[in-house]
Amino acid sequence: MSKPYYESGDLKKFGDIAEFEPELAAKFFDYYGSVFEEGELTAREKALIALAVAHTVQCPYCIDAYTEASLQKGANEAQMMEAVHVSCAIRGGASLVHGVQMMNKAKKIGM
């Protein structure tokens, strides 16, 4: 079988992106670290948001990472699934709300 596009082990190599361009990588990881620090939002709330976004962008690395992070920050399975539903609702809603645009156009050119 040919090598799959995604390898779960590659997540651990995320930091290796610095090899080709260290300065931007350093800035990014520094920023990334700050984003996930406890702030006005708790670390757990941020992990759950990240989990929802991970599903929206359908990044398997992020899903792995933030499933574990959410559990490790004290979230439970039901909360995590609710977060996925939030992602789904926004994503589905984003398609559906464009139905208004479709209707506008259809009404304009229809009789």
């Binding site: 708790t42 574990e68 559990l71 490790q72 004290g74």
Partner: peptide
């Protein structure tokens, strides 16, 4: 204690929850 193969959450935060 975690119900799975992961580390516990921060004790203070979890106690509040």
């Amino acid at each position: 204690n975690p119900a799975g193969a992961f580390l516990p959450a921060d004790q203070t935060a979890l106690e509040a929850d």
